[in-house]
Computed example of a mutant assay.
Amino acid sequence: MSSSDPNTPNDPYRKSPYGEPSPQQPGQPPPQDREQPRGHPQAPPSGPYDPYGGPGGAPPGAAPSKVNTSRMIFFVAAGIQALFSLLAIVTFAAAQNRLEDVYGDLGIGTGIYYTLFTLFLIHAIAGLVLAAKMPRGGNGLRVGAIVWSALLILVGLATLPLGFLWIVLGIVCIVLLSSTESAAWFNRLRT
């Protein structure tokens, strides 16, 4: 057989005996006779900048992952801080006589400890309220959350070495909430 024989297997003009379409000729566009699949609509392509961070964007009203992560950190950090503050206040109240004997030589009254742990408790409650209101959005809420995170760093500094975790969580929240994606979500139009 020669290469010009139309029955050779590599011939691009050869028809298939099974009714399948012949292979596409080099340099020719693909055939347009096939129908598009029906049923599921095609997803719109994601643009070069997606302010919500996900492929195809987040659904309208859904918070980006940075905001959701910050919200979960707020719930966890504020919840643990509230429990420890309540536990410290109850412990100081139960052992007040013994604490005055121990810390009386330092010249620090137990009222300072009550005040300190009450402030920690108020800070924790404020964090829980901010986390609960985060889905609503609003730039004032974002600024309040950043301020709360900065105060969380101060709480961590006041309670070192155990407060190192609060310092890290406060820094992470500030970074997440200060991103352009978070700012765009908090500043979105709300209905």
Rank of each mutant, 00 (worst) to 15 (best):
S3R: 10
D5G: 08
T8D: 04
P9F: 11
D11A: 09
D11L: 02
P12H: 14
Y13C: 03
Y13K: 07
K15V: 06
S16R: 11
P17M: 00
P17G: 03
Q28K: 15
P30E: 06
P30M: 07
P30L: 13
R34Q: 15
R34H: 09
Q36W: 15
P37F: 15
G39R: 09
P41R: 07
Q42E: 11
A43T: 04
P45R: 12
P45E: 14
P45T: 09
S46D: 05
P48T: 12
Y49K: 08
Y49Q: 07
P51W: 02
P55W: 15
P55C: 04
G57H: 01
A58S: 07
P59D: 05
A63F: 01
K66E: 11
N68R: 13
R71K: 15
M72T: 08
F75S: 04
A78H: 00
F84N: 05
S85M: 06
S85K: 04
L87P: 00
A88Q: 09
V90N: 10
T91F: 12
L99H: 04
L99T: 03
D101Q: 14
D105S: 15
L106K: 09
G111T: 05
T115C: 05
F117R: 05
F117A: 08
T118F: 13
T118R: 06
I122P: 00
H123F: 13
A124H: 11
A124S: 14
I125N: 00
I125W: 02
L128M: 13
V129Y: 10
L130F: 08
A132I: 04
G138R: 07
G140K: 03
S149T: 13
L151Q: 01
L152D: 06
V155R: 06
T159R: 01
F164C: 09
C173A: 12
C173Q: 10
L176P: 05
L176E: 03
S178V: 02
A183C: 07
F186P: 10
N187G: 14
L189G: 08
R190Q: 14
R190K: 14
